[in-house]
Design a protein around this nucleic acid. Sequence first.
DNA 1: CCAATTCTGTACCAATCGGTACGATCAATA
DNA 2: TATTGATCGTACCGATTGGTACAGAATTGG
Lengths: 206, 206
Amino acid sequence: MPRMLAEKSDAVAAIAEVFREHGYEGASLSQITAATGFGKGSLYHFFPGGKEDMAAHILAHIDHWFETELFAPLRTGDPATAIARMMQSVTTYFQSGHRICLVGAFALTGTRDRFATPIAHYFRRWINALETALHRTGLDQTQASQQAETAVLAIQGALVLARALNDETVFTRALHRIEADLLRPARPASQPPTGQGSGGLDGGAA
Amino acid sequence: MPRMLAEKSDAVAAIAEVFREHGYEGASLSQITAATGFGKGSLYHFFPGGKEDMAAHILAHIDHWFETELFAPLRTGDPATAIARMMQSVTTYFQSGHRICLVGAFALTGTRDRFATPIAHYFRRWINALETALHRTGLDQTQASQQAETAVLAIQGALVLARALNDETVFTRALHRIEADLLRPARPASQPPTGQGSGGLDGGAA
DNA sequence: CCAATTCTGTACCAATCGGTACGATCAATA
DNA sequence: TATTGATCGTACCGATTGGTACAGAATTGG
């Protein structure tokens, strides 16, 4: 069987950057050919489904990287170490806020409807993995769930705000605070702020 | 002088929704004409600069709305009341997470470079106004600044995550937590955020 | 070596892109 | 009501869109 002259995965990373820059709908094939160095022929050979096929491969690639690099350690490794490693990996991966989260960006436009399943899976697994780690540090299930959701949410917010203000210190400052919150020793059943409770029951999504 | 047959501002709101749906680069003029009901003639009469002109007007409109509805009360009104009102307005404006923040979405793609100034101004003024309110509740300047940045950041993250998971409870849960954090009575001089202290466990981020 | 198969550049397609031109249409004033 | 100038629809422009077709270059197994 003839080996490939070039790797499909070579293109995936380059295309991802085009999507990061212009969004899914805003990215044109000519920009993609320029960024990858591949002609349309090669592109449609690798990705017969066109742009949608490319985006699907990119999301799968991102998902796989986070799974092995972050999620798995959170689920099975030493919790505190895995959490510290997560913050480190996130900082590196997002280049201290200079690089955006493609999954988060996709979630904000109509692109979400096309890729709703992988987008939701990505964040759900991230939150669940972090929740598992927190639970194993001694936090009760409810607090672990809340903290995990809050942390992932804050990372996304940090990416938005750092880019909006064009200030990477916003990102690094936020990540330090998030890490401190996560590694803070478990509090013994702190009383909820009000009787309201904000629907504290588990938020199983649809 | 002939009165206007239709208001420019009528179009602004409709165009904003198109941008929310498809992003700036992904929004086409035909989608805009369909959404507004205006033909290209009217559109280019109102916005001689084309798409970029439209987006600039939209950003100005959003900025003005937030300025009068949120920022001004935060700066001059009763702090606790203004903060509570802010959370209420944010919930309504973003429809509990079903509607995205156009400014935040613009910040994530290359669109940011086109509108860097209004985007940065929007978030900077939001943070500053909230910081002022917090300072007037008794928080010292450093803590007020930190809390304000954290809150605005969390709101943006809540919008991303709620849309990604298609679960509005993520948004409402986050907003309740943010409000509780903001209105929590000032703590007496906890150590500044620069300290990496916390657990003192193995080394933190780079 | 050569054939088989994988890869890749180019030409091409209908459709649509953002934008312009311009005559028709409208409401208000005089 | 006639005039006026803002408002609006439509036809049209060159350029570009996402996508297809296909011949030829590259790379392997035999």
